[in-house]
Simulated scan of single mutants.
Amino acid sequence: MSRGRKHIIIGVCSLLMSYLIVQSRNEWAPLHAWNRAFADVSLFMLGLVMIIGPIVRIFPVLKGMVTWRRSLGVWSGILALIHTIIILDGWVEWDVARLFFIFTPFGKEWILHPGFALANAIGIIAVLYYLLLMITSNNLSIKKLGNSAWNYLQSKTSTLYLLILLHTLYFLYFHKPENPNWMKGPFIAIIVLIYLFQIAGFVWTIRKRNKKEGRAKMF
């Protein structure tokens, strides 16, 4: 299947998933519901990128999934960018300083909130890195950068994943924790599932190498 068709399939699925998530939160303000939906689907897409590698190591018959990784990563970045634009345009009205301050109705002033500021700073770094990965996620970049440099850049997806986990963790559990959000459970499940597959992939790789060394010694 061509990369263009993969982008169309993933794009349609992304928008459909976002729509369904919004419908599950009809008690939320539409702006906030769409904002969170795009962020949730972006995280899900990145989770798939992280989990494909270990799955293919354990089940080589599924190696065709690897060809979907680049498109999944691009759409994860697109959704994260939409999430950011909604915040910038619909919430802070392009006053970037408000990403680090919380308005207090009692004092009627904006005050710096360390946790809120740090979480948003991490989010900004993640989006910028997303943009870098998206811009270079093409054959022309491979040619210009060279295979070694391009592979090094793209291999840092785990760093991006960690940044997004920290950003999401704060807004799910620490920023207004009294607000209901059914994503809290699935968020933990995604983290656990990804790390279980990564551990399984690591163990499988070691066992496979040991078997090869064992067979080599027999001869």
Rank of each mutant, 00 (worst) to 15 (best):
M1V: 15
R3Q: 14
R3Y: 15
H7T: 01
I9E: 03
I9S: 03
G11V: 11
V12C: 06
V12K: 02
V12Y: 01
M17K: 01
S18G: 04
L20T: 03
V22T: 10
V22D: 06
Q23W: 12
A29S: 10
L31E: 13
A33C: 07
W34E: 06
N35Q: 12
A37L: 08
F38L: 12
F38V: 07
F44Q: 05
L46C: 10
G47V: 04
G47S: 10
G47T: 03
M50L: 13
G53N: 07
P54G: 08
V56W: 00
R57N: 02
F59Q: 09
P60A: 11
L62W: 05
G64F: 09
V66W: 02
T67F: 00
T67A: 13
R70H: 08
V74I: 15
W75V: 08
I78T: 07
I78Y: 15
A80K: 04
L81A: 14
I86D: 10
L88M: 15
L88T: 03
W91R: 10
V92Q: 08
W94P: 12
D95W: 04
V96R: 05
A97E: 05
A97G: 00
A97R: 13
I102G: 01
G107S: 13
K108G: 05
K108E: 14
E109N: 08
W110H: 06
I111E: 06
L112C: 03
L112S: 06
P114L: 04
G115M: 11
A119F: 09
A119S: 15
A119M: 10
A121F: 15
I122D: 02
I124T: 10
V127E: 06
V127W: 09
Y129P: 01
L131W: 02
L132D: 02
L133K: 02
L133G: 04
I135C: 01
S137T: 07
I142P: 00
K143T: 11
K144H: 10
K144F: 10
L145N: 01
L145A: 03
A149Q: 11
A149F: 07
Y152P: 00
Q154G: 06
S155C: 09
K156V: 00
S158V: 11
Y161L: 08
Y161I: 02
L162S: 06
I164R: 01
I164E: 06
I164Y: 12
L165H: 07
H167Y: 12
L169Y: 15
F171C: 05
L172M: 07
L172P: 08
Y173W: 15
F174G: 02
F174N: 03
P177T: 13
N181A: 13
G185T: 14
G185N: 05
P186W: 11
F187Y: 15
A189F: 14
V192E: 01
F197S: 10
Q198P: 01
I199R: 09
F202P: 01
V203G: 07
W204V: 09
K208F: 00
K208S: 12
K211W: 04
K212R: 10
E213A: 12
G214C: 07
G214A: 13
A216G: 01
K217M: 12
K217V: 11
